[in-house]
């Protein structure tokens, strides 16, 4: 039932992409996004398609998993595409009844749809191949510099990893309480807004109580182990760059340079 919800959607296989340092993947994703917005020509699209296909192949994650993320934004794609298509002024390509579609409109609609699709697929590769914990570790280390301007990087990362850690726990808890109340005759599929809201009370009250109880327990456990923030704290699994990460950095920079070159040439 609720257990089928996946957030953070990590797909556990062993691949080159999975083994990369999370910092590389973060940097790569950032570069990829910039490339996507630099590209505005077929040649640029072709380059990005090749890059994306290669990474997907290397990641060993089934393609269907990547497309899954697209389902959520299909409506957004259609609307954004339609607006660009019909509302961009310019030389009319053809006219349907009273609405004229311009060449510029077609181009910008295609660009829009292409960018959004590639954006979702590209970023989902990162979440599919990186565990949420690696991700926050990577973020913490990449953003270390911000410490100098008094941004509490470690605290933010810690909050992120705790939040991520609690998602499956709370989902499980919700599932359990839902079942327990259903065993007492609760009906969560009632019709009507008021009835629906009422039916939620026996679920939400225990859920909140348990969330606070867990937060309290966790805070106590952390304090009992002398947690006092990020200063001087070491990691159980410190991030180390390896040869493959260097190779990946070079590849990323190469692709970045290539896409800039393509954008300038065409």
């Amino acid at each position: 039932m609720l257990k089928d919800i996946t957030l953070g959607q990590y797909y556990p296989v062993d691949s080159v992409v999975h083994r990369l340092d999370p910092r590389v993947k973060l940097f790569g994703t950032l570069m990829y996004v910039i490339c996507l917005f630099v590209a505005d020509h077929v040649a640029g699209f072709a380059l990005m398609t090749v890059v994306l296909a290669t990474v997907i192949f290397l990641s060993k994650v089934p393609f269907s998993y990547m497309v899954r993320g697209l389902k959520a934004i299909v409506l957004l794609l259609v609307i954004a595409g339609a607006f660009n298509l019909f509302l961009t002024p310019g030389e009319a390509a053809f006219t349907l009844w009273k609405i004229s579609v311009s060449w510029a409109g077609i181009k910008s609609a295609l660009l829009m749809v292409f960018r959004m699709t590639y954006l979702i697929i590209g970023t989902s590769i990162m979440t599919l191949t990186t565990t949420p914990n690696q991700l926050t570790d990577g973020l913490e280390k990449s953003l270390r510099l911000l410490n100098y301007i008094h941004v509490p990087v470690h605290e933010i990362a810690m909050m992120m990893s705790i939040a991520l850690r609690f998602i499956p726990i709370l989902i499980e808890e919700t599932d359990k309480i839902m079942k327990a109340q259903m065993a007492r005759g609760a009906d969560f599929e009632k019709k009507g807004l008021v009835n629906k809201a009422k039916a939620m009370v026996p679920l939400l009250v225990p859920l909140f109580v348990s969330a606070f109880r867990r937060a309290n327990d966790l805070a106590l456990a952390m304090e009992a182990r002398c947690y006092h923030g990020g200063e001087g704290r070491t990691k159980m699994k410190p991030l180390h760059y390896r040869r493959i990460d260097a190779v990946a950095y070079v590849a990323i920079l190469f692709v970045f340079a290539a896409s800039i070159a393509v954008a300038i040439l065409y």
Partner: peptide
């Protein structure tokens, strides 16, 4: 299990 967690 832990049925007290469902009290509301």
């Amino acid at each position: 299990q832990y049925p007290e967690h469902q009290l509301f």
